[in-house]
C-alpha cells in the first residue's frame, strides 16, 4: 500500500516544472477566483460585522470553484501521447502517481490561497477576533480534503463523456461535509469562538478519504 517515494518525487517535480514553465493552472485559478470575489461583491455590500459571518463561505466557495479548474487539468496532459497508458503498463505503483498528483494539486491550490487571502481580507475588510493561526490549520486540512477527493474524481471523470462537467458533479456532493466544516471553522474563528469540533471533523474526514482513495485508486486507474 505504501508507495515508493522516489516515483512520487519524480512525478511531482515533473508536474511542478511543467506548471512553472506554463503557469496554466495557477493563472486560470487566480483569475477565476478574482472573478468570483468581484461577482460576489455585487450580490451584497457587507459591513465588517456581516462579512465576518459570510467570509468563510465566500472564501471557500471561491477556492472550491477555482480548484476545479486546476483539478480538471491534472490528468488531461497525461492523456495526450498516451502517457497514462504508459504509466499503467509500467511497474510503478499507481498510488505513487496518485500521491504525486495530489501533492501537486495541493501545492497549486495552496499557492492560490496564499495569493488570494490578502486580497479577500482587503476587499471584505476582515479582522479576526479569534486565534488566526488556527485558520492556517483549517486551510491545510481543508485544501487537502478538496484535492485528495478532487484528484481521485478527476481520474474517474477522465473516463466519462464530457469529463469537465463530470468532475464537479461528483466532487461537490461528497465534499459537502468537508466544505461545511471549513466554512464553519473559519466563521467561528473570525467571530472569536472555538472551532475545535470542526477541525477534528475535518481531520477525520481527511484521514478516511485519503485512506479510501489510496485503496481504490489502482482499481480506478486500471478500470477497463
Amino acid at each position: 500500500m505504501i508507495a515508493p517515494t522516489g516515483i512520487t518525487r519524480v512525478t511531482l517535480l515533473k508536474d511542478l516544472r511543467l506548471e512553472w514553465r506554463s503557469k496554466d493552472a495557477i493563472n486560470s485559478m487566480l483569475f477565476f477566483s478574482l472573478l468570483v470575489v468581484v461577482v460576489f461583491s455585487f450580490s451584497f455590500d457587507p459591513t465588517a460585522e456581516e462579512s465576518r459571518q459570510i467570509a468563510g463561505g465566500l472564501i471557500w466557495v471561491a477556492f472550491l470553484f477555482a480548484a476545479v479548474v486546476a483539478l480538471n487539468q491534472t490528468w488531461a496532459r497525461e492523456i495526450r501521447n498516451q502517457v497514462l497508458d504508459a504509466y499503467r503498463i509500467s511497474p510503478a505503483p499507481a498510488n505513487s502517481l496518485f500521491m504525486a498528483k495530489t501533492l501537486g494539486n495541493f501545492i497549486f491550490v495552496s499557492v492560490l490561497e496564499a495569493l488570494m487571502t490578502p486580497l479577500f481580507i482587503m476587499f471584505y475588510r476582515l479582522r479576526s477576533l479569534g486565534p488566526a493561526w488556527q485558520l492556517l490549520l483549517i486551510a491545510v486540512l481543508g485544501t487537502w480534503a478538496l484535492v485528495v477527493n478532487g484528484t481521485f474524481f478527476a481520474a474517474m471523470s477522465l473516463r466519462t463523456r464530457s469529463r469537465e462537467i463530470m468532475l464537479p458533479l461528483l466532487l461537490f456532493p461528497i465534499s459537502i461535509p468537508a466544505l461545511l466544516a471549513m466554512v464553519q471553522a473559519t466563521a467561528d474563528i473570525l467571530n472569536g469562538e472555538g472551532a475545535r469540533f470542526w477541525i477534528v471533523l475535518l481531520a477525520t474526514y481527511d484521514l478516511v478519504f485519503t485512506t479510501v482513495c489510496l485503496l481504490l485508486f489502482e482499481t480506478v486507474l486500471n478500470a477497463e
Binding site: 481521485f152 456532493p173 461528497i174 478516511v208 478519504f209 482499481t219
Partner: peptide, 13 residues
C-alpha cells in the same frame, strides 16, 4: 468499477 468506487466513497460520506 468506477461506479462501485464512487458508491463506496459516497456511503462513507
Amino acid at each position: 468499477t468506477l461506479a462501485a468506487a464512487l458508491a463506496v466513497l459516497g456511503a462513507l460520506c
